[in-house]
Amino acid sequence: MTVIPNLTDLRPTPDDILGDVLTGLAQSPKRLPSKYFYDRRGSALFELITRQPEYYLTRTELGLLKASADQIADAVGPQAHVVEYGSGSGKKTRLLLNAFKDPVAYTPIEISHSALAETVRKIDRRFGSLEVLPVCADFTKPVPLPRPARKADHALIFFPGSTLGNFDADEAISILRAMGQTMGSRGGALIGIDLQKPRSIVEPAYNDKKGATACFTLNLLVRLNRELDSNFDLDRFAHHAIYVEEHSRIQTFLISQREQEVEVAGRAFRFAAGELMQVEYSHKYTDAFFSALAAEAGLRVAHRWNDPNNWFGLRLLRRIEHA
Rank of each mutant, 00 (worst) to 15 (best):
V3I: 06
I17T: 05
G19E: 08
G19F: 00
L22S: 06
L25I: 09
K30L: 06
L32Y: 03
S34P: 07
L45N: 07
E54Q: 14
R59H: 04
L64M: 01
A69S: 13
Q71Y: 07
E84Q: 11
G86D: 04
G88K: 05
G88M: 04
G90N: 07
K92S: 10
A99L: 11
A99M: 11
K101Q: 13
V104I: 15
T107C: 08
H113V: 01
S114M: 08
A115V: 06
A117I: 03
F139Q: 12
F139G: 12
K141R: 15
R147L: 13
K151I: 01
K151H: 08
L156W: 12
I157A: 06
T163H: 00
G165T: 02
N166Y: 02
N166E: 00
A169F: 00
D170R: 12
R177N: 01
G180M: 04
G184Y: 02
G188M: 06
A189W: 00
A189Y: 01
L190H: 10
I201C: 09
I201S: 13
Y206R: 01
N207W: 10
T217E: 04
L224V: 05
R226W: 00
L228T: 05
D233A: 12
S248F: 15
R249D: 14
F253Q: 13
E259V: 10
E259G: 12
F271R: 10
A297Y: 09
A302M: 07
N306H: 12
P308T: 11
L317V: 07
R318F: 08
I320S: 14
A323H: 15
